[in-house]
């Protein structure tokens, strides 16, 4: 579905991504794992159009989307849940969700109900300012907001960051549920254990290069991965 060829991205003179190629099959959960500074976030940001690639191409369902502006990419069906949640703190939960559907001109009420079904907690809090939610609820809101654009692919940048283990489990259950309902997921995580457990396909990224790939289960049992990321 999403195909990346030889992608290179530079950041202020430093090449953060040094030519990676990967594929995200439709309706699967794909995860990229790697240490800090491996280039995971940069890869996602480049796919989302927030960073411009120096080299390489990105194709969505055969269509070249390299270097398009972020709003064009969202309208093509790729939405990013940014690292650190980034909800709009002074706006209510409903308003946050509506902004997720900003580029759509059709009726969004069904999707609002869909998101509320996925996250009943958000429905209870729909009139609260997003800044007053707990970390886990904010993460739910960030995911719900991204789903409001009806994406084909949802990309998540460290959804477990700074959350309690029980909350993290809830988030991962939701990711599985979203995927089950037909949305392709591209996930990057430092919590490799959790990510590999739910991933259909996994890639290991080290200092801007892909070093390993396989199914989530394969990598979970891989000695190298065990040593470096699972501890």
């Amino acid at each position: 579905m999403l195909k990346i060829d030889e992608l290179k991205v530079s950041y202020g003179g430093i090449e953060a991504v040094k030519g990676i190629s990967l594929e995200v099959p439709e309706r699967k959960i794909v995860t990229l794992i790697g240490a800090n500074g491996a280039g995971k976030s940069t890869t996602l940001r480049t796919i989302a159009g927030l960073a411009k690639p120096a080299h390489g191409r990105i194709h969505l369902q055969g269509e070249d989307i390299t270097g398009l502006s972020p709003d064009r990419i969202v309208s093509k069906g790729i939405t990013l849940v940014p690292e650190g949640r980034h909800v709009f703190p002074d706006l209510t939960v409903v308003e946050n969700l509506k902004i997720g559907a900003y580029l759509r001109r059709d009726n969004i009420n069904d999707d609002l109900n869909w998101v509320y079904e996925l996250f009943p907690r958000l429905k209870e809090r729909s009139w609260q300012a997003a800044g007053t939610l707990s970390g886990g609820e904010q993460q739910m809101l960030a995911v719900g907001r991204a789903l409001m654009s009806r994406p084909k692919i949802i990309m998540m940048d460290e959804p477990s960051l700074g959350l309690a283990p029980i909350v993290v489990k809830g988030i991962f259950d939701i990711i599985k549920e979203i995927n089950h309902q037909g949305v392709t997921v591209l996930l990057i995580e430092q919590n490799a254990n959790m990510a590999l457990r739910i991933a259909d396909v996994a890639y290991v990224l080290e200092t801007g290069k892909l070093t390993l790939s396989g199914s989530g289960r394969e990598l979970l049992n891989n000695e190298q991965v065990k040593k470096a990321y699972l501890g």
């Binding site: 989302a48 927030l50 972020p70 709003d71 990419i73 969202v74 309208s75 939405t79 990013l80 849940v81 940014p82 980034h86 909800v87 709009f88 703190p89 002074d90 706006l91 308003e95 509506k98 902004i99 997720g100 900003y102 580029l103 960030a142 907001r145 991204a146 654009s149």
Partner: peptide, 17 residues
């Protein structure tokens, strides 16, 4: 709403299209 989104968080606003 888009204006307020930009005021609150440019990064997220941009990511939301």
């Amino acid at each position: 709403r888009a204006f307020k989104a930009i005021r609150e968080d440019e990064i997220a606003a941009e990511a939301m299209g």
